[in-house]
Simulated assay, not measured.
Amino acid sequence: MALFLTLENIYKLYNIDPSQKTEGIVILHQRNHPEKGYTNHSRLFDGLLLGFMLQGSMKAQIHFLEHEVKAGDIAVLQPQLMIDTKFLSEDAEIVTIGISSDFITSFPVLREFIMNNQIRWQPIIRLQHEEIKLQNELITLIQSFYHKKQSLRKPEMLQHLVITLICMISEAYSGLADNKNLTKNRTHEIIDDFYILISKYATQQRSVKFYAKKLHLTPQYLSTFLKQKTGKSVLQWIDHTVILHAKTLLKSSNLSIKQISNELHFEETSLFCRYFKRITGVSPGAFRNG
């Protein structure tokens, strides 16, 4: 399943009690269920995602590169970064905190944090051993406040607790200053620029030539480069992004399939249906009902 997550649709997609809704923040506490079987799961969130691996492990592709996340690790996903979960251990337990873009823009320290290029290419971090206990206690406290009954100051209290947690993570990244040159090579620049383009244009432009021209590269070079560096060609990344949006609209909205087809700039609904089935193996209607 692939999902484009926002604070507006996440409650429906994950069956979260809407009474828990708190402005700017959502929290998920998830445990793997081996008896249900595991399926590859792609997500893209329009804000900041913090994933805390409490136990077990997972393998995930984050912003084109594969990472292993172990118990005690923190996965930091800046806004609009795609994560594809490839594997979850049977004992996997994860707490995820989602923070909206509006929340982020209200606090200068958060704006600086999400603009850090180092985080994009090193999204997995671990606090110092002596701070992991504080981190876990803070996560428990944040969850307790999140689930407490609504009150006038609840959002404000949650905000301060979450900012404290992010400051701890930011401090851990500052200790990796010697590795900042990791983000400055040409390979990363091309991938970053391409990702910005498909995030903006994938639902409107599905031509390799369009992206190659924007990046001042030949179509053949761009496709070969992305295939070598990320495992997917330009067309595969475009398809991946379009299907991400299509599946989210099918699951989280009441738009008709024709309306979704129009939203994704297909000339005819039949073209969208064939496109969707060719890539996913099922029709849009079957996916929505399933």
Rank of each mutant, 00 (worst) to 15 (best):
N116E: 12
D102K: 10
N116M: 01
E112A: 08
I97Q: 04
S89V: 00
L77A: 15
Q78D: 06
R126I: 12
L127P: 04
S89M: 03
G72D: 14
E93H: 13
P123W: 15
R120H: 01
S106G: 10
I114D: 07
Q128N: 15
S106P: 01
K86E: 12
I114M: 02
V95D: 09
Q135L: 15
N136S: 07
I94T: 05
S100E: 11
W121S: 01
I104K: 06
S101N: 13
T96I: 01
V109A: 13
D91A: 06
F107K: 09
Q122T: 03
E130N: 15
S101C: 07
Q80Y: 13
F113N: 02
Q128C: 09
D91V: 00
F103R: 03
L81Q: 14
A75N: 03
A71V: 11
R126Y: 11
R126E: 14
I74M: 13
D102T: 04
I97C: 05
L77S: 13
E90K: 08
G98N: 05
I114A: 06
D84T: 13
I74N: 14
S89R: 03
I99G: 03
T85I: 14
H129V: 02
H129L: 08
L127V: 08
I97L: 10
I114W: 01
E130R: 05
N117H: 05
K133C: 08
T96H: 11
R120L: 06
I97H: 04
H129M: 11
P108R: 13
V95K: 09
E112W: 03
F113T: 00
M115V: 00
Q122H: 14
E130T: 10
V109Y: 02
D73F: 05
L88H: 02
A92S: 10
L88G: 06
Q122S: 07
A71R: 09
G72T: 07
L77Y: 14
S100C: 07
R111L: 07
L88Y: 04
A92D: 04
